[in-house]
């Protein structure tokens, strides 16, 4: 655990670190403060330095409070993870020029990068227009408030899918009508493409299987 961050920070043995071992845990915390975070003056690090003392725990709690860690009430692993991340952030802030051009090494791509042609996939879900639109549809469908507009939209979708809803009369100017029409047209276009592909597949199969014949000796037609 924590191998990546420890490696990034230059810890001497990131491979073998065992976070379950109380002693190792404590020495990593000390190492972070001594080498990376340096929040206290050297003399004030005494409490953390006594890694064998029972009072270490109190010192650690105080340390976290002083750093304003959001997870000071969390599990030891969560606490350490935050400390590591904090250290990484400090490291980066100290050497912005060095790191800013760093590129993440792209893993080998098996599939080509798919650019979605579906306009729905390219919606900006956080735009005020989207949020407002969802708000309006929710008011119509009676969906309650929620901070995430996407969640509210999926609730609306659920309602539309499960409960019957008569088509609005054309004459009634309805805020639902226009977007519904657009969605229907997009759907029909998709469906047409699918049907065309199905037909092409059928024709391809037919080129192998088809052999239509008639035999007028079997019956009698005309007179």
């Amino acid at each position: 655990m924590f191998k990546l961050k420890l490696t990034a920070l230059g810890h001497p043995n990131p491979e073998s670190f065992n976070c379950e071992d109380e002693k190792e845990y404590r020495s990593v915390v000390l190492w972070l403060e001594d080498q990376k975070i340096r929040h206290y003056k050297i003399e004030d690090r005494e409490g953390l330095r006594n890694i064998d003392a029972d009072s270490w725990k109190e010192a650690y709690d105080l340390y976290q409070k002083d750093l304003v860690s959001p997870v000071s009430d969390g599990s030891p692993n969560e606490q350490l993870n935050w400390l590591l991340s904090y250290a990484v952030r400090l490291e980066f802030a100290d050497n912005v020029t060095k790191y800013k051009d760093a590129k993440i090494e792209q893993p080998k791509q098996a599939a080509p990068n798919v650019v979605s042609s579906n306009p729905l996939d390219n919606l900006n879900f956080s735009s005020p227009a989207f949020v407002n639109g969802v708000e309006r549809v929710c008011a119509l469908t009676g969906v309650g408030p929620h901070s995430d507009p996407k969640l509210r939209l999926s609730a609306v979708a659920k309602i539309l899918k499960t409960s019957p809803h008569p088509d609005y009369p054309r004459t009634e100017v309805s805020v639902v009508q226009q977007p519904a029409d657009v969605l229907k047209l997009l759907f029909i276009q998709d469906l047409r493409d699918l049907q065309t592909k199905i037909n092409e597949a059928l024709v391809a199969v037919q080129s192998v299987t088809a052999d239509p014949r008639t035999d007028t000796s079997l019956g009698r037609v005309g007179r």
Binding site: T214, L218, R220, V221, G222
Partner: peptide
């Protein structure tokens, strides 16, 4: 002449 019609007619597709 192509479509078999009427009572007693038989199909011509084998």
């Amino acid at each position: 002449d192509h479509i078999p019609v009427g009572v007693g007619s038989k199909g011509i597709i084998p």
